[in-house]
Simulated assay, not measured.
Amino acid sequence: MTEQVEIFEVGPRDGLQNEARLISTADKVALIDMLSQAGFRRIEVASFVSPKWVPQMADGADVLAQIDRVESVSYAALTPNMRGFDGAVKARADEIAIFGSASEGFSKANLNATIDESLARFADVAAAAKAEGMPMRGYVSCVTDCPFDGEVAPGDVARVVAALRDMGAYEVSLGDTLGRGLPERVDAMLAAVLEEMPADRLAGHFHDTAGRALENVDVALARGLRVFDAAVGGLGGCPYAPGAAGNVATEALDAHLRERECDTGLDVNVITQAAEIAKSVRRV
């Protein structure tokens, strides 16, 4: 039987946040509207963070107000604090995400807090999401390597995953933020994480800096994961991870999964058109 695998599109948020020039709201809306026709169940479209730190995401509320929503699509927003959560609720995001790091160095650079401090901050957001009936996803950054601390121990990843699980995250996405994770180290990390959370509540998030993203997808597939984040056109990177390239491209991941007789439910023609839009946005 054909295996069902979901691609969670993160290009409009995780992809565009790292662009050097400001992308117009109209361009973001056009990209999201195209992606909404491709068959995705979930698309991450905004981040309610301080525009001082991530200026590309300053127009999140406008983006959510202007997109042509498709009923079958959940439009997600990243919310690092209560101010961000309130903004996402007012903008009618369908779900939110919170994010932690498995390495202290990255946590301090990205969140200006230790891992424990950052998790404590998210407790209020998690409680508010539960009270609001808002689905909450979790992200863990630097699951194999950190630009500041080097190799990350699998147990450190598992600890953060468990904390996000206990806060109520319905799913946790595991991010190889640098894109340099070796398949054997990804496998060891997954072995530890699976002690805390089942495969059907985990997602793989692989950047392609070293050209190993699809190899790591295969490792995760073998461990039972059936959700993978990707960015159309290979958009992305991370402002706090020097040298990190883009996310694995949605169109490349879709083709890779199809070769393995997995069904993503996506329209190849639409994601190809969306990839062209994404690339044109970057070139302008």
Rank of each mutant, 00 (worst) to 15 (best):
E9K: 15
E9D: 09
D14W: 04
Q17Y: 11
N18C: 05
E19D: 07
A20G: 07
R21L: 12
R21Y: 08
L22Q: 15
I23S: 02
A26K: 15
V29A: 14
V29T: 14
L31A: 11
I32C: 13
M34K: 15
Q37M: 15
A38D: 03
A38K: 10
R41Y: 13
R41M: 03
R41G: 11
E44R: 13
A46P: 09
A46D: 12
A46F: 09
K52E: 11
K52Y: 11
V54N: 12
A58F: 14
A61F: 13
R69D: 14
V70W: 15
S72H: 15
S74T: 11
A76Y: 03
A77W: 07
A77D: 07
L78C: 12
T79F: 08
N81A: 05
R83S: 04
D86R: 15
V89Y: 12
R92E: 13
R92L: 14
E95Q: 15
I96Q: 05
S101K: 02
E104Y: 05
E104R: 06
F106M: 08
K108T: 01
K108E: 00
N110V: 00
N110R: 06
L111Q: 06
N112F: 09
N112W: 12
A113D: 00
A113W: 02
T114S: 15
L119Y: 01
L119T: 01
A123D: 01
V125C: 09
A126V: 08
A126P: 01
A126S: 11
A126F: 03
A126D: 02
A127E: 03
A129Y: 10
K130F: 02
A131E: 13
M134V: 09
M136I: 15
R137E: 06
G138M: 08
V143D: 01
T144G: 03
D145E: 13
F148S: 02
G150N: 09
V160K: 02
L164Q: 13
L164I: 03
R165V: 04
M167K: 13
M167A: 12
Y170Q: 08
G175V: 11
D176I: 06
T177D: 01
L182E: 14
P183V: 08
R185T: 01
V186C: 05
D187P: 06
L190A: 06
L194Q: 12
L194A: 05
E195R: 15
E196T: 09
D200I: 00
A203W: 00
H207F: 08
H207E: 07
D208S: 07
D208E: 09
A210C: 12
A213V: 11
A213Y: 04
E215I: 07
V219S: 02
A220T: 04
G224F: 06
R226G: 03
V227A: 11
D229M: 12
A230P: 02
A231E: 04
G234E: 00
L235G: 00
G236N: 05
Y240N: 09
G243C: 07
G243F: 10
A245T: 04
V248P: 01
T250G: 07
T250W: 08
A252W: 13
D254I: 03
H256Y: 07
L257D: 00
L257R: 02
C262E: 01
C262H: 10
G265P: 02
D267S: 10
I271C: 10
I271H: 06
I271A: 04
A274W: 04
A274S: 11
A275F: 00
K279C: 00
V281Q: 03
V284L: 14
